[in-house]
Simulated assay, not measured.
Amino acid sequence: MEESLPAEGSPPMEESLPAEGSPPMEESLPAFSFLAQLFQCSSSCVTNVLLTFIHVLHELWFKDIMTTVPSREKNLTSLPSSFQMYRNCRMIIDCTDVEIATPSSMDLQKHTYSKYRGMHSFKILLGVAPNAVITYCSKLYPGSVSDKAIVTKSGILEVFRSGDLILADKGFLIRDIVPEGVSVNIPPFLNHGRLTKSEVKLTKDIARTRIHVERANARLKEFKILRFIPHTLRSNADIVVQLCCALVNLQNPLSKEVAVNLDN
């Protein structure tokens, strides 16, 4: 059974940013003026066409395809060999940052500045299935928000059922908030400056499985539009990022083992 994700119109979290005045998109992006001259139309016409296509593709490739998370049983049909120890894994989760233009408001700067990254950013929570397909992409959150807060506010926990396993990094201290019967596996913390042999093995096992979500993050960052989000794109940043996630899934499989199976 596949679980539906929370509705797009869910209430915004407390840390969501208020709208900030900025010039129209066509006034700040030179490419729009070039396209307007090339096609002999106004810059606002170019903007409308671009945003229309972004919204249409988001509707087709994200909302129609990526608003359900494959069940644990579905994952088993394409489970890589590296997950034999984690056959009940439903999802590997991780957060990634997208740099944004520095807000003019000091109050907004406080919310968007990430001390860890040393920049103003938005954070996205990604969920990847064992076969390295992106199965969850949250809305964007200010860079100062913790991973645990994003997990709580995004609604991702609603898709998990008893018996599911979540693989994550050390920053996801979420065992106390997951639904009953759901397990969370993160690398062990150092105990008196060292790891035991069993902890070293566990760390290596988790690292081998987490490589999929790291590859998904890396491929997502290959889209130039996500290297830096100007003020003019901020109001559409959610759907742009989610559309890019859908486009990642349309590319060649991230898992070589899955790619070989498809070729055969």
Results as ranks from 00 to 15, higher is better:
residue 49 V to W: 15
residue 232 T to C: 15
residue 38 L to P: 00
residue 206 I to N: 05
residue 146 S to H: 05
residue 2 E to L: 09
residue 174 I to R: 02
residue 33 S to R: 05
residue 141 Y to T: 11
residue 167 L to N: 12
residue 214 E to F: 06
residue 28 S to K: 13
residue 179 P to L: 04
residue 179 P to K: 01
residue 170 K to A: 03
residue 61 W to G: 00
residue 136 Y to K: 06
residue 4 S to E: 14
residue 148 K to E: 04
residue 13 M to Y: 12
residue 39 F to G: 14
residue 101 A to M: 11
residue 99 E to T: 15
residue 26 E to I: 09
residue 136 Y to H: 08
residue 54 I to W: 02
residue 10 S to W: 02
residue 230 P to F: 11
residue 217 N to A: 10
residue 15 E to M: 11
residue 256 K to H: 12
residue 28 S to C: 09
residue 93 I to D: 01
residue 227 R to P: 02
residue 148 K to D: 01
residue 39 F to E: 11
residue 257 E to W: 07
residue 208 R to L: 15
residue 83 F to S: 02
residue 260 V to G: 03
residue 52 T to M: 04
residue 131 N to H: 15
residue 208 R to Q: 15
residue 190 L to Q: 01
residue 198 S to H: 08
residue 195 L to M: 02
residue 160 F to V: 02
residue 5 L to G: 01
residue 54 I to L: 14
residue 34 F to L: 12
residue 261 N to M: 14
residue 10 S to K: 14
residue 255 S to P: 07
residue 67 T to G: 02
residue 151 V to K: 07
residue 201 K to T: 14
residue 244 C to K: 01
residue 164 D to E: 04
residue 259 A to L: 15
residue 158 E to C: 07
residue 64 D to I: 01
residue 79 L to S: 12
residue 179 P to V: 05
residue 111 H to T: 07
residue 123 K to V: 00
residue 252 N to Y: 07
residue 182 V to M: 04
residue 173 L to Q: 15
residue 227 R to A: 03
residue 86 Y to K: 10
residue 264 N to E: 10
residue 38 L to E: 08
residue 261 N to D: 07
residue 184 V to T: 13
residue 215 R to G: 05
residue 5 L to Q: 11
residue 182 V to W: 12
residue 121 S to E: 07
residue 25 M to I: 14
residue 129 A to P: 01
residue 171 G to D: 08
residue 214 E to C: 02
residue 207 A to S: 15
residue 250 L to R: 05
